[in-house]
Design a protein around this nucleic acid. Sequence first.
DNA 1: TTGTACGCGTTATCAT
DNA 2: ATGATAACGCGTACAA
Lengths: 330, 330
Amino acid sequence: MATIKDVASKAGVAVSTVSRVINSSGYVGEETKKRVLNAMKELRFRPSHIARGLVSGKTYTIGLIIPDIANPFFPEIARGVEDEAIKNNFNVILCNSDWKIDREKMYLSLLLEKWCDGVIIVGSRSEEIDLLRTLGDLPFVSMDRDISSAGHSVWVDNVLGGYTATKHLYSMGYRHVIHISGPLNAPSAVARRKGYELAVKEFALQSPVVVESDYRKSGGFTAVMSILDDSSKERFDAVFAGNDLMAIGVLHAANDRGICIGEELGVIGYDGIPESEDTFPSLTTMFQPGYEMGRRACELLLSEIATPSSRLIKEVFKAELKIRKSTKRS
Amino acid sequence: MATIKDVASKAGVAVSTVSRVINSSGYVGEETKKRVLNAMKELRFRPSHIARGLVSGKTYTIGLIIPDIANPFFPEIARGVEDEAIKNNFNVILCNSDWKIDREKMYLSLLLEKWCDGVIIVGSRSEEIDLLRTLGDLPFVSMDRDISSAGHSVWVDNVLGGYTATKHLYSMGYRHVIHISGPLNAPSAVARRKGYELAVKEFALQSPVVVESDYRKSGGFTAVMSILDDSSKERFDAVFAGNDLMAIGVLHAANDRGICIGEELGVIGYDGIPESEDTFPSLTTMFQPGYEMGRRACELLLSEIATPSSRLIKEVFKAELKIRKSTKRS
DNA sequence: TTGTACGCGTTATCAT
DNA sequence: ATGATAACGCGTACAA
């Protein structure tokens, strides 16, 4: 790789002159400029961001720590983040934490050592205090988590979402709504459950029935199956699943048992992953605008990087009810 | 951020001693070592990968250029790449090219300037010669593309896959198989079509019928609809879609028209995205082991980075036929 | 066993 | 308008 020095000697000027040409800072004579530009072309010169970074302390790189890019809700977020980043000449380092606290920490260390300019953390389950300790004063934005005492945050109102989902089921005529929740160490799962409970108290005489699961298809499947098989459990005619993946598991279970979804059993999910349109029957869900959330989170992060501010922004999105066939009685 | 200098003065030693402790290279007295370690803790010292990189020329970062992380086949690959990378202390920079040649080029430039140690390029549509020109001697692995005169490559045998898919349809009793292909500037689409044509020639009297589309749900949908509406077109009783997304579009179209999939119309897709299990009816497809392919591509890249070799490895995976309900007559 | 000094590629400050 | 040089944080010969 050709360096600025090579360019300088080839053009017969000093490195500082070349630097001025590259950054178009300071005075450079027309003639000299041409010579330098030519030398750059011929040597296929590329300025080193590494050396630049060492001087400036900026790397134009941010970290994105998400639980699992292979989990269908996250690619949308990642895409939103990356689009906004590249628009501003930033790159994104992808980190999959698997919801593991120590993996999060490990990635944070690496990102810190690589002097990345900021981090977006999605769905962290770490203690906030621990996060802040290792982050130091690195700009960051947290997503999918309702609280944050430092750094901006972007989330959807999951209590409202859970409430809306449950309310929708009652409004469609279902009377015994159970909830299959995500793992209750996930803030989002806790919030959605809370929304569910609120709605149950408001609209029904039943008491809340919550089964904790794992946000996965298989989890939704077995959760429903076990309730179906346990005759001691109450009857139910609708389920609010904590996310779409589990809802799809529920769909499978019901199909296997010959239960007619919609008619006999109402099912609503959460997330609005693309797949929810293509299930049988199509899945009613609470759509989260993942792309836009990711984009916005990145926007906030970049503005924080550009000009640190003391004001904390908490951006709250609303999940949007998408009514489809899994909650319709024909 | 504390530097190696700060640690040195705090511990009352020279920077080189600290450096030796960090890298456990060279001799360091037990007592000194302890003092240095303590100083590091107290100062929360983190070695700068940037400075290291400038010296060593290595950044422990690779680039992953894929068309679109939000497209359901790619997250699996990305996850495989990232898992293998982090296992070796490498980070992955995520780049979405949208199949655009100039975006690929732009990302390559950035990655080059950031001195990343290597690149994995998935589904590139650039001219090979152009790629090689801008890549220079940067180690790289190309995926999902059948040829490569420099750098390793990982792909699935799409001709075989297309052949197998088509053959399966005939073996299930369908007689008029049409093909909805991906965009024919995509090498994968061309190869799959070729496999289709081979099978048609071998197993049927009909001539091949190919409709070019765009690898998207809506593309599959409209492609089928237009054929259905065009009475001049031949009749068909099965379709091999170039990927699962388009196959899902076909499913929707057939459902809309009241065509019984499986019975009246056989449908097979390609990719084996998670969603293909949950459609109605479940989608027969050619499964590509995305995770494993990504993992392997990264493995190849890292070994190339560690010890450059002249030997070019071409790793060919096979797509696996997953028989489900969309190709079954009951 | 430990310290000194140079170099990595670049920017920025100061002279010229 | 241009050139010389220190500095960024670290690794590494080489000297002590």
